[in-house]
Write a protein that binds this DNA or RNA. Sequence first.
DNA 1: TTGAAAGCGATACCAA
DNA 2: TTGGTATCGCTTTCAA
Lengths: 335, 335
Amino acid sequence: MSHLTLADIAKAAGVSPSTVSRVLNNQIGERSKVRARILKVIEETGFRPHAAAQSLASRRANNLGLLVPAPVWQVFNQLYFLQLAQHITQAGQEQGYLLSLFLIGSGADQQKLLPQITRQGFVDGLIVRVMEGIGEDPLLAQLAQLGVPLVASGRPAGPEQTSYVAADNYGGAHTALTHLLSLGRRRIGLIVGSMEAPGGHARVTGYRKVLAERGIAVDEQLIVVHENGYLATQSLLQFKPDALFFATSMALDVLQALREGGARAPEDIALVGFDDLPLARQTDPPLTTMRQPLAAMGQRLVHILLDIIENGPTPVRHVTFEEELVIRRSCGALS
Amino acid sequence: MSHLTLADIAKAAGVSPSTVSRVLNNQIGERSKVRARILKVIEETGFRPHAAAQSLASRRANNLGLLVPAPVWQVFNQLYFLQLAQHITQAGQEQGYLLSLFLIGSGADQQKLLPQITRQGFVDGLIVRVMEGIGEDPLLAQLAQLGVPLVASGRPAGPEQTSYVAADNYGGAHTALTHLLSLGRRRIGLIVGSMEAPGGHARVTGYRKVLAERGIAVDEQLIVVHENGYLATQSLLQFKPDALFFATSMALDVLQALREGGARAPEDIALVGFDDLPLARQTDPPLTTMRQPLAAMGQRLVHILLDIIENGPTPVRHVTFEEELVIRRSCGALS
DNA sequence: TTGAAAGCGATACCAA
DNA sequence: TTGGTATCGCTTTCAA
């Protein structure tokens, strides 16, 4: 036979299509006799309902999209994001939604892919990964204008008209700095890849705030804005820091520079990295980091998106998650 | 208004729905007057066709799925795979198909997600990422039984009933070994994470083959099967290798062990890694690697899948791509 | 709880 | 080239 339809199942089970549909959607008496019979037929025949027909009739796709403007060069953060994506998939599943990931790239590629993805009834809503630190992205505005239910993963630059779920980089910096201070470190170096990044800005702000609270003067020489962790570390070393705070993705470069400079970690210099990447467990010494609660963030993203789908985009939801300090050898707290 | 349909556009443009549909699908005279008029109306109103309705009527979803049984711990290879996924997205786009990525996890998660993904008319076909080195996966058999058009990315373990596109690990090993031999290295150590991995097996086979061709006796002590690159390197060092060949994901561990053992690379020991991960450019020294032609592989995956969708699963297609040697400092060829 | 029948919004066949 | 219309497979009122 070519392929089965719900009508075939109905006929085989001796009931109406409506009834089969109800069984499929669990809106029928739990221990009904018919229910069992229908389920048996479905099982035996290997019937799979037609997705398009279901969506068209029910006016819901049960499909959420995750848009990744994927500059593959942002490798380490992508990796962190992949874990988040897995959590989002699970959270969606629990709510009866499937999560489709789209690597839409940028520029022309992106603009070719978007019309397909934003067709009516294709996805019920979109989660958009914003690369913090890449300035304002027209993508969000473009999607908002289409009226697609939308939530950002990460804090978008620019006006805050988009709902988002993000990690608290500011608070994370605060926690990390406080930790280093409590370990007796006073000359804490800070490496930031770029100040344009919201994350970068938050880190510097958090840094200044904590020192101010403790009445410690900020030595401007200890703050370096540079994309190359190796060079940044080299230039920092001449100012004799006793601790360093930097993006975990820079860990290899930083450690390299320290080795060449004859500085031991954590004895001479305590280290804390942002982002609890797998890499953090592989370095020598293993790197103390700030960890984002990815599972909780994934769930929240899904819940907010479903809320927007059902109740509209207003009011705008902004949710920030605190980061957790994960202590390993590099900060010296374990010795 | 609530939302636009094709009929609305037809009315506004003063034509029939059929005509609008034809314009949407580019089956109408290029410089037709009506065409321009309709396009204008679509533009002005921001009409987006309904995906489910299109799929239902045309019996094609224009959607390809990429299944990733994502054990996130396989981080580095996942990363390599993300690049491939981006290429697949582009290749699909060129053929008019959208690529949806599904992180289906394993076990119970996987079995909950699959029914949704394999509903009729949801995707036209699936590309399945097989994790080489994880033994036989029932997933492929399960999908094949459903009759879903299917192609594997990577060479599946077990009977070869599934079409696949894979990199030639065997040939890659051959190329790398030949290169090291041409540089005068004779005691080449080989580290393999696991022999169960098809990739692992191919590497060992390639290794033996090349040495045999050159009439060089194989020193079994130079072949180490161990998941921990650090320990593997340590144990290898006592047998005085002058070169090492290992998975790039182990690079940090290997380099660490070499440093501690007082061996310099590439002077004392030349290094070549499998897989041209971004990491290869960040190590010290930068790592010579074997690179897979990801763009070509992505295109081939899409073409084969479309072929299977149109012409059925037989005959089974097996395509293997040669790997390319990327020379950096670690092999000593640049000095 | 069940069945009958009217959509859902496109496509594609058949005529004109 | 165009228009009229049956059709795709399911959901969902509305009645029974």
